[in-house]
């Protein structure tokens, strides 16, 4: 750990030499991109279903879940940027992100079955 990248010994480096927070931030960003693709596909499925009430509701729920993932990612990215030694992800946030994903899939199943 005390290689030349870290600077002179005894001096605290002003960044993680492995860029761990940055890589984690980009991983969250990629995840929001994947979520966006799913939300777009869900929107297309909902509109292609002929605009039934159930279809529109399922599509809207998917959009809310997408916003939820965006919000979780945004807050986590801010935490990662705020501190040089960021704390671990809170399980409740991880659970919430997974919940949004699962609800999207359930709405997807409803859309596929009614379409």
């Amino acid at each position: 750990m005390n290689g030349p990248v870290n600077g002179p010994p005894g001096q605290v480096p002003d960044r993680d030499p492995g860029l761990q927070p940055e890589r984690t931030r980009l991983a969250w960003r990629r995840t929001t991109l994947s979520g966006t693709v799913v939300a777009l596909l869900a929107g297309k499925t909902a509109l292609a279903g002929g605009g039934t009430v159930a279809g529109i509701v399922a599509g809207a729920v998917c959009c809310v879940c997408w916003l939820g993932i965006l919000r979780i990612a945004h807050r986590r990215i801010r935490v990662l940027a705020a501190s040089r030694v960021p704390g671990a992800l809170v399980p409740r946030r991880a659970g919430a992100a997974v919940l949004c994903t699962v609800v999207m899939a359930v709405c997807g199943a409803a859309l596929v079955l009614q379409g």
Binding site: T31, S34, V38, T101, M104, A105, G108, V112
Partner: peptide
């Protein structure tokens, strides 16, 4: 989680 989202997107596709 991205793998899961990709599978879900595949279902829609």
């Amino acid at each position: 989680l991205r793998t899961a989202l990709a599978l879900i997107g595949g279902g829609f596709a």
